[in-house]
Design a protein around this nucleic acid. Sequence first.
DNA 1: AATGAATGAGGGTTCATTCAT
DNA 2: CATGAATGAACCCTCATTCAT
Lengths: 220, 220, 220, 220
Amino acid sequence: MDDRAARLRHDRRLQIVEAAKQVFAEMGYHNASISEIIARAGIARGTFYLYFPNKRNAFDAILTDALGELTRRVRVISLAPEAPPPRRQLHTSLVDVLTYVLEDRPLTQLLLNHGLTPDAEASERVEAFFSHVRSMIESSLHHGIQMGLIRPCPCPLVAAALFGSIRGSVRYMLQLEHPDVPELADELISFALEGVVKPDRWSGGYSTSAHGGPVTKQVR
Amino acid sequence: MDDRAARLRHDRRLQIVEAAKQVFAEMGYHNASISEIIARAGIARGTFYLYFPNKRNAFDAILTDALGELTRRVRVISLAPEAPPPRRQLHTSLVDVLTYVLEDRPLTQLLLNHGLTPDAEASERVEAFFSHVRSMIESSLHHGIQMGLIRPCPCPLVAAALFGSIRGSVRYMLQLEHPDVPELADELISFALEGVVKPDRWSGGYSTSAHGGPVTKQVR
Amino acid sequence: MDDRAARLRHDRRLQIVEAAKQVFAEMGYHNASISEIIARAGIARGTFYLYFPNKRNAFDAILTDALGELTRRVRVISLAPEAPPPRRQLHTSLVDVLTYVLEDRPLTQLLLNHGLTPDAEASERVEAFFSHVRSMIESSLHHGIQMGLIRPCPCPLVAAALFGSIRGSVRYMLQLEHPDVPELADELISFALEGVVKPDRWSGGYSTSAHGGPVTKQVR
Amino acid sequence: MDDRAARLRHDRRLQIVEAAKQVFAEMGYHNASISEIIARAGIARGTFYLYFPNKRNAFDAILTDALGELTRRVRVISLAPEAPPPRRQLHTSLVDVLTYVLEDRPLTQLLLNHGLTPDAEASERVEAFFSHVRSMIESSLHHGIQMGLIRPCPCPLVAAALFGSIRGSVRYMLQLEHPDVPELADELISFALEGVVKPDRWSGGYSTSAHGGPVTKQVR
DNA sequence: AATGAATGAGGGTTCATTCAT
DNA sequence: CATGAATGAACCCTCATTCAT
C-alpha cells in the first residue's frame, strides 16, 4: 500500500523531471516557464510545487542527477601491468559515457551549453565537473609522459584540447540518428592519440613552428 | 556638421555596445537588465532605445559584429604548389583568430556558451557560424586525404573533434594572464596533427579497436 | 450506536476547533493555513472539510461559540429594590466574564484584535457584539442618571469609554500569570465609578474645561 | 527644475499612500491587494513599485509616519509649579491627538485594529507604541499618587483601563459626523478623573468589594 | 537628442478546496 | 469515514518598452 504510493510518487516525479529537462534544454533556464513545463508534463501548476519547492531546485535536481551519473561513468585509466591495455580501458570508459549522454539528449544539451543554467552558481557546478574531468586527463598525460607512452607536451593545454575534442564529438554525435558508439569512440581515440596526419608525410618532427623550428621545448 | 553628428552618434553607439557586451557576457542575456547596461554606459533609459530598437537587437548587433570579424579571420588553407606550407598557413590563421578572441574576453564568453543567448534563434546563429567553420575543416580534411597528406578517417567526426579541441583550447587560454599565442597555436596544431602518442610506442597501426581490428572503414 | 457515532463526531469536531482557535489566534486568520490547523489537530487535509465546509466557516463557528457564551455571561443590572446592591451585581457579572475570557486566551486574542478576522463581515459580527454590550452599558447609565445614582453625562461617549476601559483591562490581565480576577474586577469598577482623583483635591466640580468652565451641559 | 520633479514625486507618493491607507484599513493587510491599491490610486502596477519596494514596505511607511506623528503629539504632563494646571495640559494634549486621529480615519482604523497588520512584527510595532503611552500614563499616576493628587490604586491596571477608555472613545468618535473634539476631550477627562457616580451616593469609600470590604490594599 | 517616470504583460509561487481511493 | 495527491485561481513582483517633457 505504502509501497504503491511511493512508486506512484516516484513516477510522477520522473514525469515532471522529463518534461522539465526537455524544456530547460530547448529554451534555456530563463525562457523555460513553469507553464510550459507543466503543459508538457500534463499536470496542474500546483502539482509541480508538490514535487519541487521551486523552479531553481527542479533544475538543480536534474543537474545533480546527471553529474552524479557521469562522475560514476568516468573512470581512471590503470597503468598497472595486469590491467587491460590502456587504449581498451579508454575505449570502455568512453563508450560508457557516450552511451549515457546520447541516450538523454535534452540533458546533454543542458550540459554542453552551460549558459542555459539559472546563474553563475549553477554554471560553476557544471564547470567544476568539466574541470574535474579535464584535470584527470591532465594527470594521465603527465603520467604517460613519464612512462614514455606520451610525447612531451604542455599538459594543461593538451588536456583542454583533448577534452574539447570530446565535447565537440558529442555535439556531432547528438545529431546522428543511430550513432555507432563503439566505432565512433574508437575513431575519437585514434584522433586524440595519433592526430590526423599520415605518419610518413609532413615534416618529420613533432612540430614545425611558423617562426622556424620546434617551439615545444619552452612550453611549461 | 552632419559628419560630426554622425561621428558622435557612432561613438555613443559604441559606448553602449561595450557596456552591453560586458553585461551580456557577465550575466547572460536574460539576467542582463537594461538597467545594468545603461548604468555602465552612463546613459538614460530612453537613450538606449534611441540606438537600439530593443534588447534583443542590441545583442544581435554585437553578435553580428563578432561573427563578421571572425569569419574574416578564418582563412581557407591553400594547397597550391606556390603557397606557403600548409602547417604555416594553419598557424597564421589560427594565431589571427586566437588573438582577436583573446582580446575581447566578454565577447568570447558569449560565443563559447551560446546558451547565454536570448533564445533558440540566436543560439542557432552562433551554431551556424560554428557549423560553417566545422565544414571548412571537414572539406580540408577530405582534400588532405585525397592528396595523401591526411590519413583516411571519418571526416565529419574528426572535424567536430578538431573544432572542439580549438574551443577547448580557447577556454583554457582565456584563463591565462598573458598567453603566448603563437606558441600555444603551435602546440595545438601539433596535437591535432600528430596526437599525443610517442610515434614508436603503442600499437603500430592507425587504430586498434577494442573489439579487435581496424574499424575505420565502415564509418560514413 | 447512532449516539456513539454522534459523540465521536462531536469530539473530532472539538479537536479541530481547538487547533483552529490556537492557530487563528497566533497567526491571524490569513496567516493561518489549513496545513497548520490539520497538523496540530493531527488529521488529514480532507478530514477538515468533512467537518467544516471551508476555512471561513470554521472561523465563524469559533466566533459564534464565543460570542454566545459571552452574551450569556453579560447580565443586566437589576435596580429592583429586592436585588443585591448594584455594585455587587456589577462585580459578579464582570468576574464571570473575565473568568471566561482569561481561560481561553487564544479566543480572547481573536476578539480583542478583530482585524485578525477573515474580512469586514466577520469583523462586523464582533463589532456588533461589542456594540450590544456598549448599548447595555449606555442604557444602564441613562437609567442611573434618572435615578440620581449617576452624574449627568453624555452617555454614548461615557459608555464607549467605560467599555474601552474593560477591553484595556482585559488586555492587561491577559499578560498576568495568575490574575486575581475578583480583586482586579473590583479595582476596575472603582476606576469606572469614581475615577482616579482624590475626591477632595483638584477642582471641586465634575469638570473644569480647558476653555474655562463646565462644558458638560451642551453635550447631547 | 529638479525641485519640480521632487515635488511631483512627493505628490505621487502621497497619492499612493492615501490609496494604500484606505485599502489596508478597509480590508486589512492581507486582503488588500496591490490591484486594489493601484486601482484606487489610478496608477499602473509598475508605478507602485517605483515608489515602494514591496507591499510590506508600503504598509510600514504608513505605520512609521503615523506613529511618529502621534508620538510627537503625546506630551508628558508637567507638574512644575509654574506649569498650567494639569487638567488643562491633559486637555490640550488629548485634543491634539484626537484631532489628528479623527482627521485620518483609515489610519485610525489601522491602528485600532492592529490585527490588520502584515504579521507579528508589525503588530508589535503598534503594540510597542501603545505600551509606550500606557507606561507614560502609569508613571503619571504613580507621580500623582505620591503628590496626593491621585488616590492610591494599582497603577498598571488603572493605566490599562484609562488607556482603554481613550481607545474606546476614539472608536466612538470615529462614527460621529462632526465631533466637537474639545468638548468630548473634556468629558473623557471627567470620566477618567471622577468616574461616573454622583459623589454623595453609593458607598462612601473608594471600593466596596463584593466579598466584603476594600481589597485595594493587597494590589501590587 | 536626451531623459526617466510610467506602463502592463508575464513570471514564479501559494494555498484553499476537491475527489478518487 | 478518512485520506492526501491534485487542482487552479489569485497573488506579488520584475523589467523591457514607451512617451511626454
